[in-house]
């Protein structure tokens, strides 16, 4: 199953501070869309609004043509899931992998739990006997695989990825990016991926939006990175700095 994401005039304030004045973009079914920008530019807030983790926003967000606001909770969870930045913080330290993966299945009344949990671990490249491990018995990369397995187990169409590899070493990042690319190929997931690393965007995404102070300054195709094809000054600066940092000036 695959679904589009359409965001129109998404806006939110925290107290008197307008964090997102008005964000609009749409992501095609099966596309990998990147969100980049400096810290505090509102990238993660967009994901939190789309997933309704933060719900006091205004505007419209449609997933597969359906308004997320009017979707019942259970249906929303079956449609979209999120993977967080820090696998050391996003898994409950006292819950085994089995407990983590069984909970969504129980809530959604899905049968055949053992087989589904095993399949989820196989899908993320972990041995099935890891079901009885606790987070402290796993490395950072293995934890992130468990977090991805948790997101996959309800077979969603859209995955929201909030800096899924920035807490990991480059060698482990490679494993997780390969896994995400393989899953998208297999299942046709739609990804929205927040990152601060344009090399990751270039590797994974089809298009990306550059954000600054809560606004989308420019939406660019992946091909705009290598030659710095941006027109907005901030987007140009960001791409320029990334190229220089890689020594590709």
């Amino acid at each position: 199953m695959t679904a589009s994401v359409e965001i129109e005039n998404l806006s939110i304030s925290f107290g008197t501070v307008k964090v997102l004045p008005s964000v609009s973009f749409s992501v095609a079914p099966g596309e990998c869309f990147g969100l980049v920008g400096e810290s505090g530019s509102g990238k993660s807030t967009v994901l939190r609004c789309v997933s309704m983790l933060t719900d006091f926003w205004s505007g419209t967000v449609r997933i597969g043509g359906k308004d997320v606001r009017s979707l019942p909770l259970a249906e929303r969870c079956r449609l979209l899931q999120m993977v967080f930045q820090d696998p050391y913080g996003s898994l409950h330290p006292r819950q085994s992998v089995r407990t983590v993966l069984a909970e969504p299945l129980r809530i959604h009344g899905l049968g055949d739990r053992e087989a589904r949990m095993r399949q989820a671990l196989v899908d993320v490249g972990l041995p099935v006997d890891f079901l009885d491990r606790f987070p402290h018995q796993l490395s950072g990369g293995q934890r992130q695989r468990v977090a991805i397995a948790r997101a996959l187990i309800l077979e969603p169409a859209v995955l929201l990825l909030d800096e899924p590899t920035s807490a990991l070493d480059v060698s482990v990042q490679a494993e997780i990016l390969n896994l995400l690319a393989r899953l998208r190929e297999m299942r046709g997931f739609t990804y929205i991926m927040v990152t601060h690393d344009l090399a990751v965007v270039d590797h994974m995404c089809d298009r990306f939006a550059v954000m600054q102070s809560g606004e989308v300054t420019e939406i660019l195709p992946r091909s705009a990175i290598a030659g710095n094809g941006a027109t907005h000054p901030y987007a140009r600066e960001l791409i320029g700095a990334s190229l220089e940092y890689e020594g590709q000036r």
Binding site: E175, R182, H203
Partner: peptide, 19 residues
């Protein structure tokens, strides 16, 4: 291995080398 695992701008987008 570390060098090959690093995604690069303008890279091939093939699977990254894993250590």
């Amino acid at each position: 291995g570390l060098l090959a695992a690093q995604p690069r701008i303008g890279g091939t987008r093939g699977p990254l080398a894993v250590l």
